[in-house]
Amino acid sequence: MRRIALITLVVDDYDEAIRFYTGALGFRLAEDAPRPDGSRWVVVEPGDRAGTALLLARAGTAPQRARVGDQTGGRVGFFLHTDDFARDHARMRAAGVTFLEEPRREPYGTVAVFEDLYGNRWDLLQPAPDAR
């Protein structure tokens, strides 16, 4: 079996990113370990199950800093699936997450685009029962 385990997300600050992803989005801090070069290995994941997680990597160079918040050229680059859209949408809004649109129903499910603390675009998506 093969799967994508981690996706790197370049951030300005480890602790600020941890607070956002664990607080506002409700992710779990899976790892936070110092590395010999002074950086940290920081992994957050959206749920209990083993799935794809985010490696929060602090920008260390000017080109990396330029990509913070624009890792996908302004497109939605991340898709957070939920089994209860209304619950998660309400909790995230209450936590200060910026949604760029009102929730909408599509053939594939209920969805709304939001931004993380750096401006990366995400879909909050509850897949339709027959969607994958």
Rank of each mutant, 00 (worst) to 15 (best):
G74V: 14
D88M: 11
S39D: 06
V68L: 01
A86Q: 13
M1G: 15
E45R: 14
Y21G: 04
P63Q: 03
E102W: 07
L100D: 01
P63T: 05
R58I: 03
A59H: 07
P103Y: 13
Q126F: 05
E115N: 04
G26T: 06
T110E: 15
E31L: 09
E102R: 12
M92T: 04
P36M: 09
Y14N: 11
D15T: 02
G51S: 14
I4W: 03
M92G: 04
G109W: 11
V43L: 10
G96I: 00
V97D: 00
R105S: 15
G96H: 06
R65A: 15
R49S: 08
P103E: 14
V76E: 00
P129C: 10
I4C: 03
D32E: 12
E31S: 11
G96D: 01
R75H: 15
F99A: 03
D12M: 02
A86W: 08
D37R: 10
R49P: 01
A50S: 14
G74Y: 06
P107K: 08
L80T: 08
R104S: 15
A62T: 12
A53G: 04
E16H: 06
R93C: 13
G47N: 11
A131Q: 13
R40Y: 05
Q64N: 07
T98E: 15
L100H: 02
A66I: 12
V97N: 01
G77D: 06
G109L: 05
L117A: 06
V44Q: 07
R58S: 09
V42D: 04
Y108F: 15
Y14T: 04
L80Y: 07
G51V: 02
P63W: 09
L55C: 12
D84P: 02
R3E: 13
L55T: 09
R93E: 15
G26V: 07
T52F: 02
F20Y: 13
R19I: 02
T72F: 01
N120S: 03
V113Y: 08
A17C: 09
A62D: 15
